[in-house]
């Protein structure tokens, strides 16, 4: 098979684009500077399609598909914007905000938070569903880091970076639905975790202020982008 036969052509929002076979819609869209909102996705970690913010429409299909895990095909016609998508994305954000206790103004990540940025970008002005105001723990037992479940959106970036990059698998999810919760080891306080190497990768991939460095005050927690460099160093291919 010649390389050229692996090139597919498709349209995104009416724009003709070409891409290599096997690439995801999200990757192709980003290469072409077309914005699709994401939250659980992170370059360098395996995709899970969990947050559903990257849902797009494909002509000929009544189903909405997550752009981060859907591969392109020849002749595909993708829409990243529509009234329906806008409504669903806002609904997803509203549910995330209502499910836990997100108080931006006193949060360590205020101004550097992906959830906050998404709400601004997508124009979420009001949460129409009732807030649950759950009583959530803060785990400050770790020497260097704190986890605040009130701000967790269950994107599982921490779970994946810990398993796939650090190889420690300290983090995982316990429970289902609204009961779901990030746990360290077998639901022990973080500070007592035997497997945690204190590398801090989970803190820096966390999109919100759910994981942060101890001692940081309001708006002081900025996250470092380390995964792209790590991928480069490891010589991973860009596909």
């Amino acid at each position: 098979m010649t390389p050229s036969s692996r090139v597919k052509t498709l349209t995104i929002d009416g724009r003709p684009v070409s891409a290599r076979s096997g690439e995801t819609i999200l990757k192709v869209a980003r290469e072409n500077n077309i914005f699709i909102p994401t939250l659980c996705h992170m370059d360098g970690l395996s995709p899970v399609g969990a947050c559903r913010l990257c849902l797009v429409e494909i002509k000929g299909s009544s189903k909405l598909v997550p752009a981060c895990i859907t591969s392109i095909f020849e002749g595909m016609e993708v829409s990243t914007k529509s009234e329906q998508l806008d409504k669903y994305r806002k609904m997803i954000l509203a549910l995330l905000f209502s499910e836990r206790n997100h108080v931006c103004s006193v949060c360590v990540s205020n101004g550097h938070c992906e959830l906050q940025t998404l709400a601004q970008t997508l124009g979420l002005e009001h949460v129409h569903v009732p807030y649950l105001y759950p009583v959530m723990d803060v785990d400050a037992s770790h020497e260097r880091f704190v986890s605040d479940h009130s701000r967790c959106v269950l994107c599982t970036r921490c779970v994946r970076v810990c398993e796939e990059i650090e190889g420690a698998h300290t983090w995982d999810i316990m429970g289902r639905g609204a009961e779901a919760k990030i746990i360290s080891d077998l639901n022990q306080p973080w500070g007592f975790s035997e497997s945690c190497t204190s590398c801090g990768k989970c803190v820096h991939v966390c999109p919100t202020g759910a994981l942060f460095e101890a001692g940081k005050s309001t708006a002081e927690m900025t996250k470092r982008q380390f995964l792209p460099y790590l991928s480069l160093m490891r010589g991973e291919k860009n596909d």
């Binding site: 108080v103 103004s105 002005e125 009001h126 949460v127 129409h128 807030y131």
Partner: peptide, 13 residues
């Protein structure tokens, strides 16, 4: 509370 009522929220745009 820090949230607007439905009515006020709809009035923002």
């Amino acid at each position: 509370e820090e949230v607007l009522s439905d009515a006020a929220s709809r009035a923002v745009p």
